[in-house]
Write a protein that binds this DNA or RNA. Structure first.
Lengths: 230, 230
DNA sequence: AAATTGCACATTGTCGACAATCGACATTAA
DNA sequence: TTAATGTCGATTGTCGACAATGTGCAATTT
């Protein structure tokens, strides 16, 4: 008997609004009214309120007490802030994975990588995103740090939002990007966790660069990048 | 008239419960009932519910849907998880501070450092904690990354909780600890952000070590699993 | 006309009541 | 005795109504 996980009402509402923000149907700065959402979905305001708190955790909305909810802004500064944190935390995750991952984890990561590469060569963006999500999720499990996992999972929707904004250009760079994952995968097996961390950090910096150039033109040169390759 | 920031009811409740958990008056694993808290404080369950979500963000309680809230566990694994994340994020913050801090920031950091050192030589633990909180808060501002700041601030109560558990032993090591902050402060001024990051990471690793030894003794030498229940 | 004040409306915050769900216990059957 | 099942109390989830607060407009004053 399939004990299907029943989705909460707040989770459903969260997903609903989440998608709209990621797809930019709800614009940055736009007000979100509890009563309006509640009526649209035929529920009371209580679960809507809870959904808005979850969306705040996901950094998709900003809540101001007694003033309400707005769709979170997104600027070049936001993108830098996001990827700097992303780099630090996924770097840590990579180091932990090389230290702790077992056979099963490595096999699962390999399977996810295949999915990523298949999607990349087929230029299937949806499948590609599914793949990197799986890769990340398996990595979280293997890193064996639930606190880290939860922080990163809370941040994932913001990641998707930024990626979505750059989706048109991304179709061309899918295979190049998949290359990062292969490299990461191979280094996760190495005995040197520093190299694995470096690979993930390089990926994060690349994502940041792509997003910034994509959205705000290429107004930033890498003066002193410090990218030491040995 | 001082336009003091008015504290929300949920914030008040959060602080109330927060203190109890940090002081270990509410034990790990203990159930927290919405109705009970609501009655004790003479409010309805709505603000209590919201307070519990905030406490979940602070990692002081764990919420399980349709089952309720429990005081978060605290084990050697939890401590390792916490300080690994702490190290990665404060390391990032340190690097950013060396890059971005202005004159005012550095002056404020210096003032906070003085407070820390004064409290340390007076062996005033409360003042010492105030000092390091200020130091961290100013650092957050100087690092100029609100996302990072918010994540770290959400984690602060967990930090306090772990430190509180080791408070008795800490009185002796206050000055040694203050030394870390002086070193960090001096390196934040150096042009080399890598060294500043390294100093902060060393501090984090030391905190982890102290907490682990303090709470779990040195029982973890040849025991790879560490699962010794009596 | 510009600034200030007061008022009306829109929106969030809080409340008490009811519904849905979970866990423990007792009852029954093998 | 032990395992399965039904029932009951306790607890969380949801609801609609009311209270408190903030916002924008209009009237008033200078």
């Amino acid at each position: 008997m399939q004990r299907k996980r029943i989705e909460n009402i707040p989770e459903t509402i969260t997903r609903e609004i989440s998608e709209k923000i990621i797809r930019n149907e709800l614009k940055p700065g736009e007000r979100i009214y509890e009563a309006k959402i509640a009526e649209e979905l035929g529920v009371s305001r209580s679960p809507v309120r809870e959904a808005l708190r979850i969306l705040e955790k996901n950094r998709l909305v900003e809540l101001i007490p007694r003033k309400g909810a707005r769709v979170a802004e997104i600027s070049s500064a936001h993108i830098e802030w996001f990827y700097d944190v992303f780099e630090a935390l996924y770097g840590l995750a990579a180091r932990k994975v090389t230290e702790k991952a077992g056979e099963q984890d490595r096999a699962d990561l390999g399977a996810a990588l295949e999915k990523i590469e298949a999607a990349a060569s087929a230029k299937d963006v949806e499948k590609y995103y599914e793949g990197i999500f799986e890769f990340a999720a398996i990595g979280m499990r293997a890193a064996a740090n639930p606190l880290l996992a939860q922080i990163l999972m809370d941040l994932w929707p913001s990641n998707r939002r930024i990626q979505y904004a750059t989706i048109s250009r991304r179709k061309d760079t899918l295979e190049e990007n998949a290359g990062f994952f292969r490299k990461i995968y191979e280094l996760l097996d190495s005995p040197d966790e520093v190299e694995a961390e470096a690979a993930v950090r390089a990926y994060a910096r690349n994502e940041k660069q792509v997003a910034l150039e994509m959205i705000y033109g290429k107004k930033r040169e890498n003066d002193r990048d410090g990218n030491t390759k040995s």
